[in-house]
Simulated scan of single mutants.
Amino acid sequence: MVTMRKRIGLATSVLGLAAAAPSVWQTVTHIRDSSYRAPEARHGAGHVQYHMAREALITLGAFGALGIGLLTEHRDRRMWAAMVSITGGFVAAMWSGGPTAGTWAPNRKALTVHIASTTGLATGMWLLRPGRGE
């Protein structure tokens, strides 16, 4: 039986994923953008673009795995723990710019996207937590 809490958790999680879409799309469009080439990079001018492609593919996998978890009717503690781990990794990557590059987001719109996605996914995972004995 799906409780109201879990229905809201599902909806909130989906909204969190949807809120992340502009950020993911931005990364995807940078893959072929020549202004994101770094000629001074030790591993070649396209190395930054390579990392963007890798990030986009990892995100696709994470979203796919979360989607499977969200669509699973009988979500047990292990499935939920995996979903929380995936969410944690995605959210941590989204906020990694602060400690690594000194900027949490390149502009206000991006910051809003990061906050909305993080809030939606974290709230959704909290609401989807299994009850005792599940």
Rank of each mutant, 00 (worst) to 15 (best):
F63I: 07
G97R: 15
L17M: 13
V28D: 07
W126S: 03
G69T: 13
R42D: 01
A38H: 03
E40A: 02
G61H: 02
A21I: 12
V91F: 10
A56T: 04
T72F: 04
S117E: 14
T29N: 01
H114Q: 11
M1C: 10
P106G: 12
R78S: 07
H114C: 12
A56L: 07
G9N: 07
S34V: 05
I115E: 02
E40W: 03
S35H: 02
F63Q: 04
K6T: 10
G124Y: 06
T87R: 05
A62H: 03
G131R: 00
V91S: 10
R75Y: 10
D33F: 14
R42M: 03
G124V: 08
I86Y: 09
S13P: 07
E73C: 10
A19D: 01
D33S: 11
G16W: 00
I8W: 11
S34P: 07
S96L: 13
P130L: 12
S13T: 09
F90G: 02
M125I: 09
I58V: 12
S35G: 09
A18G: 06
W104L: 12
E55V: 08
E40L: 04
T119A: 13
P22Y: 09
L17Y: 11
A20K: 00
G102A: 13
A65I: 15
G102T: 14
K109S: 11
P39H: 06
P99N: 13
G133Y: 10
H114F: 13
S35M: 02
A18T: 15
I31D: 00
M52C: 05
R108M: 14
R132K: 14
G89F: 14
T119W: 11
L66W: 00
G69S: 11
G124N: 07
H30E: 00
A105C: 05
S34Y: 01
T119D: 12
P39I: 06
S96Q: 13
L10K: 03
L60H: 09
W104Y: 13
A38R: 04
Q49G: 04
V24E: 05
E134D: 14
G88R: 11
G44H: 01
G131T: 05
